[in-house]
Amino acid sequence: MTQRPSPIPSGPRPARLSFLTVPLLIGVIYNGLSLLVLPFSGPRINDMLAEVSGQAGLSPLQLTPEQVTATLWTSFFLTAAIVLLLYFTRRAVLEGRSWGRGASIVIAVLSLLIIPVGTLLGIVMLIGAFDRDVQRYVSR
Protein backbone atom coordinates (compact mmCIF):
# COMPACT_ATOMS: atom_id res chain seq x y z
CA MET A 1 0.00 0.00 0.00
CA THR A 2 1.45 3.34 -0.99
CA GLN A 3 1.25 6.39 1.17
CA ARG A 4 -0.22 9.52 -0.22
CA PRO A 5 1.69 12.69 0.41
CA SER A 6 -0.21 14.90 2.79
CA PRO A 7 -1.86 17.90 1.19
CA ILE A 8 -0.41 21.37 1.43
CA PRO A 9 -2.12 23.38 4.17
CA SER A 10 -5.15 25.30 3.05
CA GLY A 11 -5.13 29.06 2.97
CA PRO A 12 -2.51 31.47 1.78
CA ARG A 13 1.12 31.06 2.73
CA PRO A 14 2.32 33.50 5.37
CA ALA A 15 4.42 36.39 4.13
CA ARG A 16 7.34 35.48 6.37
CA LEU A 17 7.43 31.86 5.23
CA SER A 18 9.99 33.00 2.68
CA PHE A 19 12.22 33.99 5.64
CA LEU A 20 12.67 30.24 6.07
CA THR A 21 12.49 28.93 2.53
CA VAL A 22 14.82 31.39 0.79
CA PRO A 23 17.82 30.90 3.15
CA LEU A 24 17.31 27.13 2.91
CA LEU A 25 17.32 27.39 -0.89
CA ILE A 26 20.48 29.52 -0.75
CA GLY A 27 22.07 26.80 1.39
CA VAL A 28 21.08 24.08 -1.07
CA ILE A 29 22.55 26.02 -4.01
CA TYR A 30 25.75 27.02 -2.18
CA ASN A 31 26.46 23.52 -0.88
CA GLY A 32 25.53 21.99 -4.23
CA LEU A 33 28.07 24.21 -5.96
CA SER A 34 30.70 23.26 -3.40
CA LEU A 35 30.07 19.61 -4.31
CA LEU A 36 30.94 20.46 -7.91
CA VAL A 37 34.21 22.12 -6.88
CA LEU A 38 35.24 19.43 -4.40
CA PRO A 39 36.95 17.04 -6.88
CA PHE A 40 39.35 19.81 -7.88
CA SER A 41 40.36 20.57 -4.27
CA GLY A 42 42.78 17.67 -3.84
CA PRO A 43 46.05 19.44 -4.71
CA ARG A 44 45.01 22.49 -2.72
CA ILE A 45 44.69 20.53 0.55
CA ASN A 46 48.44 19.98 0.96
CA ASP A 47 49.18 23.57 -0.10
CA MET A 48 46.78 24.85 2.56
CA LEU A 49 48.24 22.56 5.25
CA ALA A 50 51.77 23.74 4.45
CA GLU A 51 50.69 27.38 4.60
CA VAL A 52 48.86 27.00 7.92
CA SER A 53 51.64 25.00 9.57
CA GLY A 54 54.20 27.55 8.33
CA GLN A 55 52.21 30.41 9.85
CA ALA A 56 51.99 28.50 13.13
CA GLY A 57 55.76 27.98 13.13
CA LEU A 58 55.48 24.21 12.78
CA SER A 59 57.17 21.92 10.30
CA PRO A 60 55.16 21.54 7.06
CA LEU A 61 52.44 18.92 7.28
CA GLN A 62 51.69 16.83 4.20
CA LEU A 63 49.01 14.22 3.63
CA THR A 64 49.57 11.08 1.59
CA PRO A 65 47.49 10.67 -1.57
CA GLU A 66 45.33 8.11 0.27
CA GLN A 67 44.66 10.59 3.08
CA VAL A 68 43.75 13.29 0.56
CA THR A 69 41.34 10.88 -1.14
CA ALA A 70 39.77 9.91 2.19
CA THR A 71 39.42 13.59 3.13
CA LEU A 72 37.71 14.40 -0.16
CA TRP A 73 35.29 11.46 0.09
CA THR A 74 34.43 12.35 3.68
CA SER A 75 33.83 15.96 2.65
CA PHE A 76 31.69 14.79 -0.25
CA PHE A 77 29.39 12.62 1.89
CA LEU A 78 29.05 15.25 4.63
CA THR A 79 28.23 17.98 2.11
CA ALA A 80 25.77 15.73 0.27
CA ALA A 81 24.04 14.99 3.60
CA ILE A 82 23.81 18.72 4.30
CA VAL A 83 22.30 19.35 0.86
CA LEU A 84 19.69 16.63 1.44
CA LEU A 85 18.88 17.96 4.93
CA LEU A 86 18.40 21.50 3.59
CA TYR A 87 16.31 20.31 0.64
CA PHE A 88 13.96 18.14 2.69
CA THR A 89 13.67 20.74 5.44
CA ARG A 90 12.66 23.38 2.87
CA ARG A 91 10.15 20.98 1.35
CA ALA A 92 8.68 20.17 4.78
CA VAL A 93 8.29 23.87 5.58
CA LEU A 94 6.50 24.48 2.29
CA GLU A 95 4.20 21.53 3.01
CA GLY A 96 3.44 22.88 6.49
CA ARG A 97 5.09 20.10 8.50
CA SER A 98 6.08 20.97 12.06
CA TRP A 99 9.36 19.04 11.94
CA GLY A 100 10.46 21.35 9.12
CA ARG A 101 10.14 24.36 11.43
CA GLY A 102 12.09 22.58 14.17
CA ALA A 103 14.85 21.59 11.76
CA SER A 104 14.91 25.15 10.40
CA ILE A 105 15.48 26.51 13.90
CA VAL A 106 18.40 24.12 14.45
CA ILE A 107 19.88 25.02 11.05
CA ALA A 108 19.42 28.74 11.78
CA VAL A 109 21.16 28.51 15.15
CA LEU A 110 24.08 26.58 13.66
CA SER A 111 24.38 29.01 10.76
CA LEU A 112 24.78 31.89 13.22
CA LEU A 113 28.35 30.61 13.67
CA ILE A 114 29.22 31.14 9.99
CA ILE A 115 30.21 34.80 10.06
CA PRO A 116 29.08 37.09 8.28
CA VAL A 117 26.64 35.68 5.70
CA GLY A 118 25.51 32.69 7.74
CA THR A 119 24.85 34.94 10.71
CA LEU A 120 22.60 37.15 8.62
CA LEU A 121 20.73 34.18 7.12
CA GLY A 122 20.38 32.60 10.58
CA ILE A 123 18.85 35.75 12.02
CA VAL A 124 16.41 35.99 9.11
CA MET A 125 15.46 32.32 9.55
CA LEU A 126 14.87 32.75 13.28
CA ILE A 127 12.63 35.77 12.64
CA GLY A 128 10.62 33.68 10.17
CA ALA A 129 10.50 30.60 12.38
CA PHE A 130 9.06 32.48 15.35
CA ASP A 131 6.48 34.45 13.34
CA ARG A 132 2.97 33.57 14.57
CA ASP A 133 1.54 33.09 11.08
CA VAL A 134 4.40 30.76 10.13
CA GLN A 135 3.93 28.81 13.36
CA ARG A 136 0.25 28.31 12.54
CA TYR A 137 1.08 27.31 8.95
CA VAL A 138 3.55 24.62 10.01
CA SER A 139 1.48 23.19 12.84
CA ARG A 140 1.02 19.68 11.39
Rank of each mutant, 00 (worst) to 15 (best):
M125G: 11
I105Q: 03
G102L: 09
G100S: 11
G118S: 09
L110E: 06
V124Y: 02
I115A: 07
G96W: 01
I107H: 04
A129P: 05
V124W: 10
V109P: 10
S111V: 05
I115N: 01
W99C: 12
L126Q: 12
V93Y: 02
P116F: 09
G102M: 08
T89K: 11
F88P: 00
L120S: 13
S104E: 07
L126M: 13
I107S: 00
P116W: 03
R132N: 12
Y87W: 15
R97I: 02
A108L: 02
A108H: 00
G118E: 05
S104M: 08
I105M: 08
S104Y: 07
F130H: 04
V109C: 13
S111R: 09
G128P: 02
A92K: 02
T119K: 00
V117S: 08
S111E: 09
S104R: 04
P116Q: 11
S98C: 05
A92E: 05
G128L: 01
R97E: 09
L94M: 14
Y87E: 09
M125Y: 08
V93F: 03
R132I: 06
V93L: 03
A129T: 06
R90A: 09
L110P: 05
L126W: 11
A129Y: 05
L113V: 14
V117Y: 11
R90C: 07
R91M: 12
I115R: 02
Y87A: 15
L112T: 03
T89N: 11
L126A: 11
L94P: 05
G96Y: 00
V93T: 06
L94T: 11
E95N: 15
G102D: 04
V124N: 04
I127Q: 01
F88Q: 09
I123G: 00
A108W: 00
I107G: 03
R90T: 02
L121I: 05
I107C: 02
R101S: 09
L121S: 03
